[in-house]
Computed example of a mutant assay.
Amino acid sequence: MKTVEFEITGKPAEILRAVERPLPEPGPGEVRVKVLASPINPSDIMFVQNLYGIRPQLPSGAGFEGVGIVDKAGEGVSVQPGTRVGFSGVGAWSEYTIAHHRSLIPVPDTMPDEVAAQLFVNPFTAFAMVQESGVQAGQWLMLTACGSAFGKMVIQLCKQKGIQTIGTVRRDDLNEELKALGLTEIINTETENMAARVREITGGAGVSCVLDAVGGHTASEAVKCLGKGGVMLIYGLLSLQDPTINVGLMIFRELTIRGFWLTDWMRRVDSKTRQEVAQNVISMLASGQIQLPVEATYSLDQIVEAVEHSERHGRWGKILVKP
């Protein structure tokens, strides 16, 4: 079978390659999945660079999620071969991969592969983070780098819940699309003072929560946008720079700043909560209430072009790998 691998960590476009490997065999509690499609997420790029919470065991496969057909089930697995599932695990950029049966989510026939491939990372993270934020209908939630696939998901989800949103961008080419999705206000961080604009938008109250994916200067400025008792959830570090935190603000506004990682959230919450999130995600995606656009599709042999495209500024949709 053909699969994407890397033998050293580094820039994805320089080290990823498609190679031939023997067909893997599922162990107890595992299934072998014939992969139909897999997205390229920021977490995948970070993993290949050894900058993620899970460290690669070299040589390593790549890609954390996808959609496929269960090809073979290991001992103790009740999922029948032939079932189309969303799955998560290391090595999704491949013709076949091994996944644990607990990571499988059967998907309805009406859901296209392009949507089902994105079922786990962004939708689950969006639902979980909006839940963790504690922001209620009518309150303000702010998200940095809001033009990302994750940002668009959060915007649409908040619109469904009646939560007002402020999103930051560095260019204005996606503003109309973001507004159409339901973003309440947009701040261009290259031309506007973030904290001043937030005070203006919120009548001086500040936002209840910030979801930050950037770190660095952007996160430092975003802390200033939090109102009394506000919370910042940091889930990414696109700038690869740590923020500088104003301790005085933390003390006198009683702010909370903490990280968020979906892997730990999935371990922490009970099975009922996980099932509720899964049902909500599937329902909203299958009904079309939330859109997950795809900009381009590449083969395994085109993995270098695919990862280069995924890191291109100004994208409006996800990049998929299709074996």
Rank of each mutant, 00 (worst) to 15 (best):
C225L: 02
V77Y: 03
M153V: 00
E7D: 15
D264M: 10
G74T: 06
A205P: 01
G215L: 05
G61Q: 04
Q241K: 09
F124H: 10
K152T: 07
G314Y: 07
D71E: 15
A18I: 08
T184P: 07
S208C: 14
V4E: 09
G215H: 06
Q136H: 04
T218R: 10
K272A: 13
P56H: 12
E95Q: 11
V121I: 11
I155L: 08
A128T: 01
P123G: 02
M153I: 07
V67N: 03
I282E: 11
Q279I: 13
L238E: 00
K72V: 08
A145M: 07
G82M: 06
I45R: 04
G204R: 15
G288E: 10
E65V: 09
H313R: 13
T218Y: 04
S103D: 12
G29P: 07
G182M: 08
L233C: 07
L255N: 04
A286T: 15
H309E: 11
D173C: 03
V294T: 15
P112N: 06
K2E: 12
G74I: 02
S220Y: 08
S78N: 11
N175I: 09
I69Y: 01
Q275D: 12
S148R: 06
K318Y: 01
G317A: 10
E254I: 10
G248K: 05
P323F: 00
Y52Q: 00
L23D: 08
R21I: 12
I15Q: 13
G89I: 07
V31R: 06
E308T: 11
T3F: 07
G288C: 13
G151V: 02
Q289N: 15
S239C: 03
G91P: 01
L249A: 11
L174M: 12
Q275P: 08
Q291D: 14
S310F: 04
E295K: 06
K11P: 10
E114Y: 00
R32S: 09
D109G: 01
R102G: 10
E5W: 12
K161G: 09
N193A: 14
L211W: 01
G138F: 00
N175T: 10
L285E: 02
Y235N: 00
Q136W: 03
F252N: 12
L262G: 05
I251G: 01
M142V: 05
G229V: 02
Y298F: 14
P81K: 11
L157E: 08
E276R: 13
S38E: 04
E20V: 09
G229T: 05
N122P: 05
I290R: 04
P106Q: 08
D173N: 14
E114Q: 08
V304Y: 02
K318H: 12
D113T: 08
M111L: 15
E305C: 01
W140C: 00
V33S: 05
K34Q: 11
S208Y: 02
G68C: 05
V130W: 03
G86M: 05
W261Y: 13
S220N: 03
C209R: 00
D172S: 15
G206A: 04
E5P: 04
A286W: 09
Q49S: 03
G74W: 07
M153E: 09
A37T: 00
L16S: 12
I319C: 05
F252I: 12
V35Q: 03
C146I: 00
T3M: 14
L174N: 02
A13F: 13
C209P: 01
V19P: 10
E192H: 11
T202W: 05
H101K: 15
G66F: 06
V223L: 03
S94D: 06
R267V: 09
K34D: 05
W93H: 09
